[in-house]
């Protein structure tokens, strides 16, 4: 939304915006209540989501938390929390462009440098299943595309 607002204010240079240019504001107004509810639910469920995810990944493949001989569980947890919080605000403001610009482009190069793409791929794929247990179907429909964006950005070389 912020990126779209910024673009709108730059493009509307001394004229009135057209209906189609204002369409995104109508959509935001219509979904804002749902977005705010989803955001609050994610905030409340953050610890449970990450804990469930960690357990599921550990059961699936413990090497997902290893980088060579190093245990990177704490690093994974820190990164996952950070991405989750950025994702939540991106969903609230309907602004995946800002998520990309401020976090994902940078993080993609870091994950590649550490060879963590396989772990990221699993993380953001399984996270979609887990958030569905905490959110209603319409809420998950808003949030899962953001998690999928994370998976595609961080998980695949």
């Amino acid at each position: 939304m912020l990126s779209q607002l910024q673009r709108l204010s730059q493009e509307i240079d001394g004229r009135y915006a057209t209906d189609s240019e204002l369409q995104f504001l109508t959509e935001i107004a219509q979904t804002y209540h749902l977005r705010a509810q989803t955001y609050q639910k994610l905030q409340a469920a953050e610890a449970a989501i990450v804990q469930q995810l960690q357990a599921k990944m550990q059961a699936l493949d413990p090497t997902l938390f290893r980088s060579g001989s190093e245990d990177v569980t704490a690093k994974w947890k820190r990164d996952t929390l950070r991405v989750l919080r950025y994702s939540a605000i991106a969903m609230l403001l309907n602004d995946p462009d800002t998520l990309r610009d401020r976090l994902l482009f940078w993080m993609q190069t870091v994950m590649k440098a550490f060879g963590a793409q396989r772990s990221c791929n699993v993380t953001y794929e399984l996270m979609q299943d887990i958030v569905k247990q905490h959110l209603t179907a319409p809420q998950a429909k808003l949030f899962c595309p953001i998690l999928e964006l994370n998976r595609r950005s961080l998980g695949i070389s």
Partner: peptide, 12 residues
Amino acid sequence: ANLMFLLETWWW
């Protein structure tokens, strides 16, 4: 630092 990470950090 990890070398690849270091290089990416330099270039950013």
